[in-house]
Design a protein around this nucleic acid. Structure first.
Lengths: 226, 226
DNA sequence: AACGTAAATTGACCTCGATCAAACAATTCT
DNA sequence: AGAATTGTTTGATCGAGGTCAATTTACGTT
């Protein structure tokens, strides 16, 4: 695993992300100043819960899973971050300790921004502070959404909700490719892989076709009713 | 329900809260400038999901439950806020729309801070922005903790974890009074009241005594092992 | 194309917690 | 105090989803 400065592709990915979109080029440059990027193989651990962490992380390519460990060794996914997403920012506000584990789900390029630098910039530039607040808020919302879905929806309903989240508003029929293995989707939805599989086959009766990673929806309404 | 300016007691409660603790008196005064407080009866709804909200809320006295509604009418608690806690700040960053419902669990005094004012202050004062970021982070963590516990722990384990959260570090034996009805605790832990009841009786075998709202722990280790 | 490995599916079983109903306890009200 | 209301516990039943084992399918490699 080598650590390098960002190349132009890394920069482009990060700058195109939600976090940077409202920031000026100058502000973005200041944040990325001194950032490094490193390559991680599938299953590599990026940080462990309770470990000191003095960076904020950003997925330049690949996929990262953030999860907690139960004392029996079972794992609970908190979030899954695809290319362009920032994660690990919580440690910045909690004594530089990670509150979860992070693992590369596939071979990934991970950028690291120095959190001291970011904190200093946030003090000086209200728009950076604002961007950070929006990031924290989005991540809080993600967790709340997840919690509410876990508590309110059955497995097939959660899967239906996930699919609908990928459906453009107007269309009644559409298809898309899962951005990761079903494995990972199951974890993200808080399900065992077997349960995800059964959920898909339950949805088949409502016009959902699954072939490998391809998902086809034939009747949006039926899904919404589910 | 009358709306008034804050009295000295309200101010004292808010200023003693986590959010204000690191802020200067001047900063706190500026935030509380124009704040109003109103009385709400048990079960009063403070705001509904998707409704426009242009305040940040603070519990001056009483108890507030934040929850989402499933389409079948079932409710899932996201968080419960006791006296001194701030809530509803998410709407500030999401187009002034509430992402959940909030309800007074008991007769409560609720302070309302103007969110435009707060946003403006955060732009001008880095320490206020910092306090907001810490608030957002704590609330995000709360949701993540909850999610992880839901996914990793059984009902009795969640209850044990809740009890241990109230146990001072050193002591092996101690007791405390539940800060709200079992009803509410059940919701907070994502359980039906019956399940909470059964969880308590399962813990009885591990040295937990429950009499009304009083909880007594006789063997901390046993609880931790559970 | 064929092989080997890893992922996904299916079936059988079992546990946990939701739900419904009823008994019981604790408050509040008169 | 006694009645009425509300909260809590207990019992019985049921269904959702976890786990384990056995296939089947998909995919990367040669």
């Amino acid at each position: 695993m080598k650590t390098l400065r960002l190349n132009s592709n890394d920069r482009a990915v990060l700058l195109g992300s939600r976090f940077f979109e409202k920031l000026s080029a100058a502000a973005s440059d200041a944040i990325l100043e001194g950032a490094v990027v490193s390559n991680h193989e599938e299953h590599d651990i990026l940080f462990h819960q309770d470990e000191p962490v003095d960076s904020v992380f950003c997925v330049s390519s690949g996929l990262v899973r953030v999860y907690r460990l139960g004392k029996d060794g079972r794992e609970a996914d908190i979030a899954v971050f695809p290319r362009g997403e920032i994660f690990g920012e919580n440690a910045m506000f909690l004594g530089n300790r990670a509150t979860a584990n992070a693992q590369a789900v596939e071979s990934s390029m991970i950028a690291r921004l120095d959190s001291r630098n970011l904190r200093r910039l946030a003090e000086q530039h209200p728009d950076i502070a604002q961007a950070l607040m929006e990031l924290l808020c989005r991540h809080g919302q993600m967790a709340e959404d997840c919690l509410a879905e876990d508590r309110l929806l059955t497995a097939p309903q959660r899967v239906a909700s996930y699919i609908l989240g990928h459906c453009p508003d107007g269309s009644t029929t559409f298809s898309f490719r899962l951005p990761f293995q079903k494995n990972v989707l199951a974890g993200k939805l808080g399900l065992a892989p077997e349960a995800l599989s059964r959920a898909f086959s339950a949805l088949r009766r409502s016009g959902v076709t699954v072939k490998g990673r391809m998902i086809e929806i034939h009747d949006r309404q039926a899904l919404e009713r589910f």
